[in-house]
Design a binder for these strands. Structure first.
Length: 335
DNA sequence: AAAACGGGGAA
DNA sequence: TTCCCAGTTTT
């Protein structure tokens, strides 16, 4: 009797990618590690569609590692404004300075030197090594976790350290002997477009025969996740002062939105003031909900503010590092 | 309202 | 090693 040999999972994925994968993303145009690095950092906690325009703006503004290293942190954060998880931008900037100092501007070509850079961990280093240097390193992002847990029928929670260890081993085990760059892109595209979190499109999937979750009817239950802790509520108040078409902002130096500009959260005594508006907003983070009230105060005389900060023209708020909900609020309040 | 998206750094 | 922290968009 003839034994039908099933194609290996990784070979099937590469074949699938030729026809159905994404080939025209902006960062796929070059193998320049700087480009791939920036894209990988942006993609760490953000979806492709959101990243595209930010990536293009960022690379246009900072064309090389040198240009990034020579920029101010303010400039870097302003390009990141709205993308969230701002430590990614601060780390990218800090890493570019390290690369200038320690490696004369050349991005490292090996795993050990890469993960020394702030913001680059095992998965990000693996992606850069595969895409730019054709080296067989595994990655383990959300897509890969989902695909592997379904293919192997892993029912333990994927946000658990034992399961994660197992997934790393599987990711490594499945690396193809050749075309590591294509495979790495392929498994991410496959996870992002076909083996999606809810309602995976199994009817056109090329690997259902070897997918344990599919064969056992478990695709909706895998991957399983431990529940995340619930959100507490934090409250704060912003005082938005306007004087002669300018608004006053201070640099935040802690917690969320570290390094970004915010309206002060303490009231400043004014002799002549004209309060325009009160209101409140909320902003949901992964670990808590921030409820903030705001008071919009139009000053009739220049306020004497002891806080260190800056007066900025309304139209210039586009160009500084502001959190998305604050930028939105200021744009609504601007004349 | 909940889910999706990894890695740094303190404990 | 483990735990805590960190933002916005999409579903």
């Amino acid at each position: 009797m003839e034994v039908l040999k099933k194609p290996a999972f990784n070979v099937s994925i590469i074949k699938w990618h030729k026809k159905f994968g994404r080939h025209d993303l902006p960062w796929q145009k070059s193998k320049d590690p700087y480009h791939v690095w920036v894209s990988e950092i942006m993609l760490q906690q953000t979806q492709v569609v959101t990243v595209i325009s930010y990536y293009q703006k960022f690379i246009t503004k900072f064309k090389t590692i040198k240009a990034l290293a020579e920029a101010s942190e303010d400039d870097v954060l302003s390009m990141w404004s709205g993308l969230g998880f701002y430590s990614r931008a601060r780390n990218l900037h800090a890493a570019s300075i390290m690369i200038m100092k320690e490696n004369s501007g050349h991005f490292p070509d090996n795993f050990q030197d890469m993960i020394r850079l702030p913001g680059i961990g095992r998965s990000t280093a693996g992606a850069i090594l595969a895409f730019c240097f054709n080296k067989p390193y595994p990655i383990l992002d959300g897509n890969v976790k989902r695909v592997l847990s379904r293919v192997y029928g892993i029912t333990t929670p994927i946000n658990n350290s034992r399961t994660e260890k197992k997934l790393w081993l599987l990711s490594e085990k499945n690396l193809p002997k050749k075309n590591i760059d294509i495979y790495t892109q392929a498994i991410m595209d496959f996870g992002a477009t076909l083996c999606i979190p809810k309602r995976p499109i199994c009817n056109i999937c090329p690997i259902t025969q070897t997918c344990v979750a599919y064969v056992n009817g478990l695709t909706t239950q895998i991957p399983k996740k431990n529940p995340v802790k619930k959100n507490e509520i934090k409250k704060t108040h912003f005082y938005i002062y306007e004087y002669q078409k300018q608004v006053f902002l201070v640099k935040n130096r802690s917690g969320v939105w570290n390094g970004l500009w915010l309206p002060p959260n303490e009231e400043i005594k004014l002799k002549n003031k004209q309060i325009i508006k009160y209101g409140h907003r909320q902003s949901v983070f992964s670990h808590y909900k921030l409820v903030f009230e705001y008071t919009f105060i139009k000053a009739l005389a220049k306020p004497e503010i002891k806080l260190k900060g800056l007066w900025i023209n309304w139209q210039d708020i586009q160009d500084i590092g502001l959190p998305a909900p604050i930028k939105k609020l200021l744009i609504e309040l601007s004349p």
